[in-house]
Simulated assay, not measured.
Amino acid sequence: MCIFCKIVNKEIPAKIIYEDENTLAFLDINPRSKGHTLVIPKEHYETFDELPEETAVNLTKTIKKVVNILKSLNPDGYNILNNNKPIAGQEVPHVHFHIIPRYNDEKEAVIKFSEPVNVDLDEVSKELNIE
Rank of each mutant, 00 (worst) to 15 (best):
K71N: 11
I87D: 15
V95K: 04
N58R: 15
K64C: 02
L81P: 00
K61Q: 15
T60H: 14
N84A: 05
T62W: 01
P101N: 07
I100W: 04
N74P: 11
I63L: 13
H98A: 02
A88F: 06
V67R: 09
I100S: 10
L70Q: 02
L59T: 08
N68K: 15
I69C: 06
A88G: 15
T60E: 14
N83H: 05
I100M: 02
I87P: 10
I87E: 15
F97C: 12
G89C: 09
T55H: 07
I100A: 05
S72W: 03
N68D: 15
N68E: 15
K85M: 14
E91M: 14
F97I: 02
K65Y: 05
A88R: 10
H96K: 00
K71D: 00
K71E: 10
N58D: 14
P75G: 01
N82F: 12
P75H: 09
H98S: 09
V57H: 04
K61P: 13
K65D: 11
I100E: 06
T62H: 05
L70S: 06
K71L: 02
V57M: 10
L59P: 13
L73S: 08
I87T: 14
I80N: 03
I63C: 10
K65F: 00
S72M: 11
A56I: 05
Q90C: 10
V92R: 04
H96A: 02
V95L: 01
N58A: 12
F97R: 08
V92E: 02
K71I: 04
L81S: 01
Q90I: 01
D76S: 05
E53Y: 14
I99C: 02
Y78P: 08
P101Q: 05
S72R: 13
V67P: 09
P93V: 02
E91L: 14
Y78R: 12
A56C: 11
V95C: 01
P93L: 03
V66C: 01
N79M: 02
N74D: 00
P75E: 00
T55A: 12
A88K: 13
H94N: 00
T55W: 01
T60C: 11
A88E: 10
V92M: 11
G89R: 10
I63N: 07
I100L: 07
I69V: 12
P101S: 00
F97S: 00
K65T: 14
L81M: 11
V66N: 10
I99H: 09
I80T: 05
N83C: 00
H98W: 06
T55I: 09
N83Y: 03
N68I: 07
N58T: 08
I87V: 15
N68F: 13
V67C: 05
V57F: 03
A88I: 08
Y78L: 15
E53F: 14
N83S: 08
K85Q: 14
S72N: 13
H96T: 04
H96I: 03
I99Q: 06
